[in-house]
Write a protein that binds this DNA or RNA. Structure first.
Length: 432
DNA sequence: TCTGGGGTCCTAGGACCC
DNA sequence: TCTGGGGTCCTAGGACCC
């Protein structure tokens, strides 16, 4: 059996843990630059706010009706996530951290020793008590069914506001009933495109989907991916709990600017900032990259004529995790794709072809970028300083602004809550 | 004025290898 | 009618996930 633990309206719940006055009120969390709504409390959903809507479109009406908006605070959410995951790891033999707010648990053989409903309820209660975060738990014979069970648990919770928050599907009868209750577009793995195809074919529920022929699924639902999904819906596992976060295959650092940029030097500063971040991530994972894609975008909306996205891919002479080397290549990439006179809103870099840094790394014949012990030390010092004094304490030159000046590419975060759990200066204050 | 930031897996075709 | 039979790597793009 597999368990899926999913935090309820995770970002909004994190805000509420440290700001209990938000309890019972509509709360939304906004994406970077306070752009879109990315998390909604139950009360905010009840007001009709949709996931992903640009906040400026709903702001006035929402706030008039008493809604609260928070800028995203990923330091806080990341730290709260670690607490939840750490506790889950104490309770299950294997845990796959699937996203910031979700984890699959391997419950192999546990039904012989535990009543799964009672066990899941206990885990749910304990997570709430220890972290302040409400969760729902779904348990079933496959991951896809566990997701589905979790969805049913969430729905029951929302409707009654007193549901048990736990759904266990451990016999055929329960599986059938569950499948009949879920719309096909709500099945894990059915996206916008597949849903449209399925509707056209007259397939509306998960139960109907589980009954389609394998050949049809392979043809219309993305080949083996679709076939696997069907098997899982029928109760045959095609995927197991993967504990280690195996080496990543790619890594991406991208962000919209707080304002439109037109000058090469400003965009170069943004690219350098993203590159530094990518270098940090790379070193934190002990990896080096061989391929780099630099991209810049103009606005997708309004009158800007397409194409709005320009990218350049560079093959590095040798895989590297050195920020200064990466920054040099990123600059070259940017100059290659730069078109003057355009209004840019976003920039980023993608690193591919990741391999373990050091040991088996192939050296280039004529490159000046071989990994020297000195450079590795330098990178270590860079990371240590930035960790100790805050990100951006030490930067590459292109990412430096004149003293006292705002970064032209900086983010807008109008309503950010303090880093309650990760910065001494921003700890919660208790008044006597 | 204002529209997120990450990821994964799969397919298919072309170049190239023996 | 029939044209060898395996492979790998690269690139681009689609679909989906949170």
């Amino acid at each position: 059996m597999f368990g899926l633990v999913d935090c309820n309206t995770f970002y909004a719940s994190c805000e509420r843990v440290f700001r209990p006055e938000l309890e019972g009120r509509p709360v939304v969390v906004l994406s970077n630059n306070d752009g879109c709504v990315v998390a909604r409390s139950q009360e905010a959903k009840a007001l009709g706010l949709k996931m992903g809507v640009p906040y400026f479109q709903v702001k006035e009406e929402y706030e008039r009706r008493g809604g609260v908006a928070c800028s995203s605070n990923y330091e806080l959410y990341g730290d709260m996530s670690r607490r939840v995951m750490w506790y889950l790891q104490q309770r299950a033999p294997a845990v796959e951290i699937y996203s910031i707010d979700e984890a699959f648990l391997d419950l192999h053989g546990m039904q012989q020793h535990f009543d799964l409903v009672g066990w899941a309820s206990d885990v749910r209660g304990s997570v709430r008590q220890r972290t302040g975060i409400p969760v729902c738990v779904g348990v079933a014979p496959t991951k896809t069914l566990a997701k589905l069970a979790n969805r049913l648990a969430k729905l029951a919770n929302q409707m009654a506001n007193s549901g048990s928050g736990v759904v266990v599907l451990d016999d055929e009868e329960q599986r059938r009933e569950a499948l009949a209750q879920v719309a096909v577009e709500d099945v894990w793995g059915v996206g916008y495109r597949s849903a449209a195809k399925l509707h056209t074919a007259g397939i509306r529920t998960a139960a109907q989907l589980a009954g389609v022929g394998d050949a049809w699924a392979r043809k219309n639902l993305g080949g083996v991916v679709g076939a696997r999904m069907l098997h899982e819906l029928r109760g045959f596992p095609c995927s197991s709990v993967t504990v280690e976060d195996e080496a990543r295959k790619s890594l991406c650092c991208s962000r919209s600017f707080g304002q439109v940029l037109t000058r090469l030097e400003d965009v170069a500063g943004a690219v350098a900032t993203r590159t530094m971040r990518a270098g940090e991530k790379l070193r934190a994972q002990g990896m080096a990259a061989r391929l780099m894609t630099v991209f810049i975008e103009t606005s997708r909306y309004g009158n800007t004529p397409p194409p709005y996205s320009f990218s350049a891919q560079l093959t590095l002479p040798t895989a590297t995790d050195d920020t200064l080397v990466l920054a040099g290549w990123a600059r070259r990439g940017l100059e290659r794709l730069w078109r003057p006179g355009m209004r840019y809103v976003k920039a980023g870099i993608v690193l591919d072809g990741l391999e373990r840094a050091g040991a088996n790394q192939q050296a280039a014949l004529f490159a000046d970028t071989a990994r020297s012990p000195e450079r590795a030390k330098l990178m270590g010092a860079l990371d240590a300083l930035n960790k100790r004094y805050g990100g951006g304490a030490v930067r590459v030159g292109a990412a430096v602004t004149t003293a006292g000046q705002q970064e032209p590419w900086g983010m807008k975060r109008g309503a950010k809550s303090p880093a309650f759990t990760t910065k001494w200066g921003e700890l919660w204050q208790v008044r006597c």
